[in-house]
Design a binder for these strands. Structure first.
Lengths: 337, 337
DNA sequence: ATGAAAGCGCTAACAC
DNA sequence: GTGTTAGCGCTTTCAT
């Protein structure tokens, strides 16, 4: 990078001291209007821009937020990033992105990177593999505010923003039942994730409400396109297959539809499918997918807002009370049910 | 953030000077093994981490790359980010992401943000709206290395990484012709983008090769799902509709399939469709989409590698020779043709 | 109304 | 082999 104009350059050219220039630039009342004008004019002329790095060092703050996220490619997460960036941008923060690629090991490294980069705060959605949270604990011990979103953990003193997974699952399954399904399978996320548990329990309770027997055999761990495709194939070939599917995300749901078609079954006539996410793909599939919108953009916004609030407040650790924010979900009915 | 352990803390506790500690930490040969060991032990014990901000100031470098990109939500771009992050991570760089959201105005602000954040280099794919490139010119004048990817511009002294758009379009259209299509429409990107031009010209030349008349009336500006859906509806209802479609991206291609189905036409029997991108959605559509893979991940990797090379070399502006790297594309044949 | 000096954390040229 | 010092660019007391 070219040598940048500094406050000193301006000071020398104007025969002033650096402190005067500094003050003039930020409209300090002590400075005479004349000097102020002169300084500002020259600054503009030379294209002076304050050196953020120097400010960082002095203020011990980088106006940067670290984002640790499983994978950008997932529509849901990219929607969240949009929300985060929107708020960060408005508040003059920048965002550093670190992907864990669903790897615990990589995630640990990410937390170190976030420390080295001296970000002011961190937004986290952890990997599917993560069961030990001590790397996040370390961030918190360093008094770096952390806000968890989507995939959260209760054992840490940190804020959380989540979709209302239980409610979303409940209305999804309720919808299937009202549409006439009686034998409903659930393609679930790993149960070490709260979202896995909450959606399963929403599924469970919706069945209960309608006096439908909860059958362990109808719950499968299948939260990717590939695993879901395979699982759906297996189940649909067995005698007495389900007439309804509630999948933990859109990819799994679309895989179910795919599998059904391949087996010559019709959706929604022979079986109905509901997803969770309301991704772009939900509108592209054939038939279009009924799904629970979890408002990723909103979720990202909220998470970022909570973090910025913490950054302003600087609550001492002893007084810290974690806040949990729940974003309501909404069923989007399309033609797969 | 909690007050961090500094080199001074260690120096005081050990009765040494800060410089000795600094040297010990980086295995300077002058330092006696004893001191070195003592310093390192205490550093580990106290959990010392070098303050990157101080280093930034001293070295006038942030080990950070700025990424200016239209929108993360697009699969192609998120694949690119993956590639970029992969390389950045391996080389101990961090990535700051700035989305233009396809807005020229926002993009100009992004370039300012990138300057304020004193990133070491910038990777850019500009917005569809962008016709004036002076904001990037400004980066280059500041001697910040810039590498353009996917959407590039020739008038600036900067490296470029692009997919082989011409070749991709050519093989796509050639494929349609070989499959029997004779009246082939092209859904194009804006012609201020090189990719728009190159793909159009690949389309044109493939027709030429087979002595098929190039018909202006069969080229439409339609590079989003919505615009393509509408355009396809219009065209397919006219007499003598096309029997083949080459779309500039997968979203448009999928929209064409959607529109065809809504009009009771069969793909690939009544009309064949080829996309460009090989996104996740291409494998989900029904029928699955034949498309040109443009290897976003590779493209991101290459772009980042080129940037890192420039950062190492520090070529003076007078000697700068822009490099253009072309990533070969590949036709992925599925059932839409 | 302006300047001098110290300090943020670290490194390196220059002592000794 | 280790210490002293200056400096990266900026702000902010404390003088004047």
């Amino acid at each position: 990078m070219k040598r940048q104009i500094t406050i000193k350059d301006i000071a020398v050219k104007l025969g002033l001291s650096t402190s005067t220039v500094s003050r003039a630039l930020k409209d300090h009342p002590d400075i005479s209007p004349k000097t102020r004008a002169a300084v500002k004019e020259l600054a503009a002329l030379l294209g002076y821009r304050p050196n953020r790095i120097a400010l960082n060092l002095r203020n011990n703050s980088t106006r940067t937020i670290g984002l640790i996220i499983p994978e950008i490619e997932h529509y849901f997460f990219s929607a969240i990033i949009n929300g985060i960036e929107e708020i960060a941008y408005k508040n003059d923060y920048s965002v550093m992105v670190f992907q864990s690629n669903e790897s615990y090991k990589r995630e640990v490294i990410n937390t170190q990177a976030v420390l080295t980069n001296r970000v002011d705060g961190v937004l986290v959605s952890f990997s599917k593999e993560t069961n030990d949270f001590s790397h996040f604990q370390k961030l918190i011990e360093n008094e770096i505010p952390v806000v968890f979103f989507d995939r959260v953990v209760d054992s840490l003193p940190a804020d959380q923003v989540v979709a209302d997974d239980y409610q979303g699952a409940f209305i999804a399954v309720n919808h299937l039942i009202e549409k006439g399904c009686r034998r409903i399978a659930h393609f679930a996320a790993p149960q070490n994730l709260q979202i896995g548990k909450s959606r399963l329990s929403g599924y469970h309770d919706a069945l209960l409400k309608h006096n439908i027997h909860f059958d362990h055999e109808l719950v499968f761990l299948a939260d990717t396109y590939e695993t879901a495709k395979k699982a759906a194939h297996d189940i649909l070939r067995k005698p007495n297959p389900p007439d309804g599917f509630f999948a933990v995300n859109d990819m799994s749901a679309i895989a179910i539809i795919k599998a059904a078609k391949e087996l010559g079954k019709r959706v929604p006539e022979d079986l109905k499918v509901v997803g969770f996410e309301n991704s772009k793909s939900a509108g592209l599939s054939d038939p279009e997918l009924t799904t629970v919108d979890q408002f990723g953009f909103e979720l990202g916004r909220e998470a970022c807002l909570m973090l910025l609030k913490r950054l302003k407040e600087q609550t001492p650790a002893e007084l810290f009370k974690p806040i949990r924010k729940v974003i309501k979900t909404k069923l989007v009915v399309r033609s797969s049910t």
